[in-house]
């Protein structure tokens, strides 16, 4: 569905991604792992068409992203961005309704837009808060409303930059389950930047690891996430704790 050819990304003085060739397919759930500043967000922006790569190409069903009109692209690719929007002064439902912008009418949201926005709020457990001003919600509740906006956008490919930020553990679990369902049951593609290796290994079927110098490896999670690869990636010693729910990697002190 989405593919890259020799993708090359850099910021001044630093190469973030070298010659990446990647294919994302429907039904896959990807984790993107890497240290702070390794280029996870930059990669997500390039893959979702928000930034032009320094070299190489990203194609959606064979068409280069730059050739697809923005509105049309927004119906296929959606992104949950890291930056927090604090400027919005309206109600939570109005915020979620903005996710319907790429669909249908341009002047005002119609009844089906409002129904889709309500459904999205319910899916993140925020249905009761639709009339509340976004600014009065807590950080975690706001994060769930932002996720609802992306659900209302209903793209085929979801790029999520740290979707679990500000969420408590039960809601982290709920969001991971939600997006795994969206990938496995609804046949969408989900790509998420995560810092928690446990969630990545338990819920994602593919992982992409960004090493220093822009060297990227990717593949099935069971091969990509092991004590060895994680120690190599984060340059830190881990202890593996095996439970019936999967492996935990705990950083050790020495």
């Amino acid at each position: 569905m989405l593919s890259t050819e020799n993708l090359h990304l850099e910021v001044p003085g630093k190469i973030l991604c070298q010659d990446l060739t990647l294919a994302l397919e429907a039904g896959q759930c990807w984790a993107v792992l890497g240290k702070n500043g390794s280029g996870k967000t930059t990669l997500l922006h390039a893959l979702s068409g928000l930034d032009k790569p320094a070299a190489g190409r990203v194609r959606l069903d064979g068409r280069a992203l730059g050739e697809i009109p923005r509105r049309q692209l927004a119906r296929r690719i959606g992104a949950l961005l890291q930056e927090e929007s604090t400027a919005f002064s309206g109600a939570a439902l109005d915020y979620v309704l903005l996710g319907r912008f790429p669909h249908g009418a341009t002047l005002a949201p119609n009844i089906s837009d409002i129904a889709a926005a309500r459904r999205a709020l319910h899916r993140v457990g925020m249905g009761q808060a639709e009339r509340q001003a976004l600014a009065t919600l807590s950080g975690g509740e706001r994060q769930r409303v932002r996720i609802a906006q992306l659900l209302a956008q209903a793209p085929d490919i979801y790029f999520l930059d740290e979707p679990l930020q500000h969420l408590d553990l039960p809601h982290q679990l709920a969001v991971m389950q939600l997006f795994r369902r969206i990938a496995h049951d609804e046949g969408k593609t989900v790509v998420m930047v995560l810092h928690d290796i446990y969630w990545a290994s338990r819920f994602c079927d593919h992982a992409l690891l960004i090493h220093d110098g822009g060297k990227i490896v990717h593949g099935a999670t069971s091969f990509m996430i092991t004590q060895n690869t994680m120690e190599n990636l984060y340059q830190c010693r881990f202890r593996t704790v095996t439970t019936s729910d999967g492996n935990y990697f705990l950083p050790t002190l020495e």
Binding site: H45, R70, S85, A87, F88, Y95, G99, P102
Partner: peptide, 23 residues
Amino acid sequence: WLLARHLDVLAIGELKAKSLGVA
């Protein structure tokens, strides 16, 4: 008035507006 919805979307941030399909 015709651009009202575009203005709503732009108000939540340039990058988010871009990802929602605003030029």
